[in-house]
Simulated scan of single mutants.
Amino acid sequence: MDQPSFSINPKGLECFRSIMATGSATAAARHLGLTQPGVSRLLGVLESYLGFELFYREKGRLIPTEEALTLHPEVELALDSLERVTRLAQGLKDSDMGALRIVAPPSVAEGMLSDLVSRFLVAYPSVQISLDSHSVDTATKMVALRAVDCGFLKLPVDYPGLSAHSLFVANTVCALGGDHPLAQKDKISAQDLQEEPLILMGKGRHSRVQIEKAFHSAGVKMRVQVETHTIAGACAFARRETGIALVNGVLARQYAGGSLVFRSFVPEIAQEYAFVTSAHAPMTRITRTFFGFCKEYFTGESGGGQGLHVV
C-alpha cells in the first residue's frame, strides 16, 4: 500500500528555525505567537516527516542534532524564498514594486555598496531596501535560489542558475603602514615583498590564485603571516604593521588614512565584479531600475577612483 503523501508545513520549518535561534520551544512559541504545545506538535510532525530527531534535551534546553545543524542553512534559504514570494505577490496585488532585496559579501556591503544604495534611495525614496551581508558561498546560493532579487559578486562565479552582468574591474593594491620603507615606492612588486610578512584573503579563490602565481613567476616565496576573510580585517592588521596586505583597491579605499596607505601591486592583478541575478526568471521592474542605476554609478565619478575601471 502506498504511503500517504504530504509536504513539509512551512510553520514547522519556522518552528525549527526559531528553536535553533532561541534554544527552547517556549521562547520559540513566544516569538511566533503560538503556544508551547503547538510548537512542540509542529516540530514533532516535522521530525516524523523527516524520519529523524532534530533536537535532544539537555539541562532544560533543546540542543540541535548533527542532522539539524546540516539542515539549518537550507531551511533559512527556503523560508527566505517563501517570504520573497509573499512580498512579490503582495506587490503585484498592490501594483507596488518598491521592495528590493540585495545580498553581497561583507567587504562589498559595508563599503562601496552602502554609498551606492544611499544614492539610489535619494533618487527613489519610496523603495524599501533589504541588504544582506553573507559569505560568498551563501550569497551565491541566495541569488541562484531567488531568496534575493540581486547580488554583487566577484567573477568568475562557478554556480548554475546565475546571470552575471559585469560592472567594474578593480586592481589589487598593497596596504601598509605609512612608515614602512616600501611606502616610499609608487608601485610594489613581488620581488619587493621578499621576506615581508603578508596578510592575505580568499584562500583557494581566483584572485588569491593569481597572487600566488605572481609570486611563483617572480621566484619569490610567500611569507604568509595572517589569513583573514574580510578586507576590514586585512587593513586593520596592515595598519598595526603586522604585515603588508594585498587587497582589492576599490573596496579597501574606505580604510585609507592615518597610518595606512595603499600602493599599486605589480604585476597588475585585476578583480572583476558583477551584478548577479537568477537565470531562471527575468528581473523585476525595480531590479532592472537598480541595475541601470548601478551602471551609471560606476560609469560616472561616483564609482570612479583609484584602482577601478568600468567594464
Rank of each mutant, 00 (worst) to 15 (best):
L71P: 11
S48E: 15
S302A: 15
E227N: 11
K213A: 12
G151W: 07
E195Q: 14
S166F: 00
F275G: 12
K295R: 14
L167F: 01
P125M: 06
A232V: 01
L193M: 12
G177D: 15
V173I: 12
G233N: 10
K295T: 09
K59W: 04
D132A: 03
L193I: 08
V173M: 12
M97I: 00
Q225N: 13
L88E: 03
M112Y: 00
H280T: 10
K59C: 08
C235Y: 03
F298L: 02
L100T: 05
Q184E: 15
I102H: 01
C174W: 11
L42C: 05
L82S: 02
F262P: 04
R119M: 02
K213M: 11
G33T: 07
E212N: 11
D149E: 09
G249N: 06
R288F: 00
T26Y: 11
T287D: 03
I269A: 10
E14R: 15
I102M: 02
F298V: 01
D2G: 03
A28K: 05
A28G: 05
E67N: 14
A270F: 02
N171Q: 15
Y49M: 12
I129L: 08
H309Y: 12
D80F: 00
N171I: 00
E296K: 13
L121W: 05
Q254E: 10
E67H: 13
P156I: 08
F120M: 04
M112T: 09
T242H: 12
H309N: 09
E195I: 00
A164F: 00
L176C: 09
L116W: 01
Y255E: 07
P106F: 02
G51C: 08
Q194W: 02
T289E: 12
E227D: 14
L251T: 07
L200W: 01
G202M: 06
H165G: 00
A214N: 11
I19P: 03
P4Y: 05
P37W: 06
A21L: 08
R84G: 03
S95M: 07
V261A: 04
I199R: 03
F265L: 12
E76N: 10
L69Q: 14
F168L: 12
A27L: 13
I19A: 03
L162S: 09
A190W: 02
Y49H: 15
F293M: 07
G249E: 12
L193T: 08
G23Y: 03
R17P: 01
V209T: 14
V261G: 07
G51L: 08
D192C: 08
F52E: 15
L82Y: 13
G178R: 14
P64C: 07
S40A: 09
E66V: 09
G44W: 05
R285A: 10
Q271S: 14
E53L: 09
L246G: 11
P282V: 00
I269Q: 14
I102N: 02
C174K: 11
R61I: 00
R119W: 04
T26L: 12
S278Q: 04
I8V: 15
A236N: 14
L260V: 09
S18Q: 10
I286G: 01
F262C: 03
L113V: 05
A232T: 06
N9Y: 02
H180D: 15
